[in-house]
Each structure stands twice: as C-alpha cells, then as structure tokens.
C-alpha cells in the first residue's frame, strides 16, 4: 500500500505517495525526473547512485524512499546555482576528470561531502573519500586532482554553502 512521505530534494519540498519497495534512487529518477542519479549496480557496490542525504553521501539504491521521509536530499542537479556550476563541477570539467560521465554525479557528490567538512584534504584523504565510487575510465588521477583543485576554491571562499 502506498504511503505519503514528505521529502526535501534540492531545496524543494515534495509530498509524495510511494510504495514501500520503491528505492530512493528510483524515486528520484522515475518520480522526480532527476536522472542525473545513475544506477550502475543497484547493490551498493559502485556509487553511481550517490546522493547526499541529511549531509551524508549514501548509495540511494540501498535506501527505501519511505525511509527518507522527513529527510533532505541533494542530487547532482542541486549543485548548480544562479552563478553557474559548483566549483567541483567546474573543476571536473576543467581538469578533464570526466570521461564517460556515468560515475561523475556520484563522484562529485562524494567530493562535495569531503570538501564540506575538510576543504584542504590531502591526496590520500581524497582517494579514501571517493573509494566507494568506482570509475573505470579515468584511473582516478584527474578526479583526485579536480577535487584538490576545487578544495582550493572552497578555501578562497568561492564554494560551500
């Protein structure tokens, strides 16, 4: 039986009726049309469905939409502002950290949760922070560089919220 949930997605409030077996990933993609959240394995192994749930980056394929009742979710679509791309998005573009792009949404959101708490991470900290987000194209080299670069922007006060 469907239940009513209240969920805040990218600063927008929603009241939605959901089946208990609907995952948060499917809610975002199929009900809200936010297809920037990708599904690469649906088992919590690849990280392409990463969203930020109440400040923590999580695999949205492992969460029931109904569990997110009362929560705040940020997806890749919620990063841009009127000023343009988020510093991380900008850094990913400029550094060439994106190839096929399928992991990019999750990778950027994991990078963001890191930088939000630590805008000056070391290389190893960056690698560990994105270690749940698999990428098969880049060897992670330019992704690590992009996160570090964006961190410098954070420190200059251009990033963060």
């Amino acid at each position: 039986m469907k239940r009513i949930i209240h969920i805040r997605v990218n600063e927008q409030e929603y009241e939605l009726a959901v089946e208990p077996n609907l995952t948060l990933a499917d809610l975002l993609r199929d009900e809200l049309g936010l297809t920037g959240t990708k599904k690469g394995c649906e088992m919590g192994d690849c990280g392409s469905c990463t969203v930020i749930l109440d400040g923590r980056n999580v695999n949205s394929c492992l969460i029931l939409a109904i569990q997110a009742n009362g929560s705040s979710v940020q997806t890749i679509e919620g990063l841009e502002t009127e000023a343009g791309l988020h510093p991380l998005q900008q850094a990913f573009v400029e550094k060439g950290a994106i190839q096929c792009g399928f992991c990019s949404s999750g990778m950027i959101l994991s990078g963001k949760t890191l930088l939000d708490s630590n805008p000056n991470p070391g290389e190893q900290e960056i690698r560990e922070a994105i270690s749940g987000n698999l990428c098969r194209c880049t060897g992670y080299q330019k992704i690590v560089e992009a996160v570090a670069d964006a961190g410098s922007d954070y420190q200059k006060g251009q990033g963060g919220e």
Partner: peptide
Amino acid sequence: LGSPLIRNL
C-alpha cells in the same frame, strides 16, 4: 568496513 558510502548507512 566497506566504503565511505556504505559506512554512512
């Protein structure tokens, strides 16, 4: 344990 994403759940 797992990855940062898993540890957050």
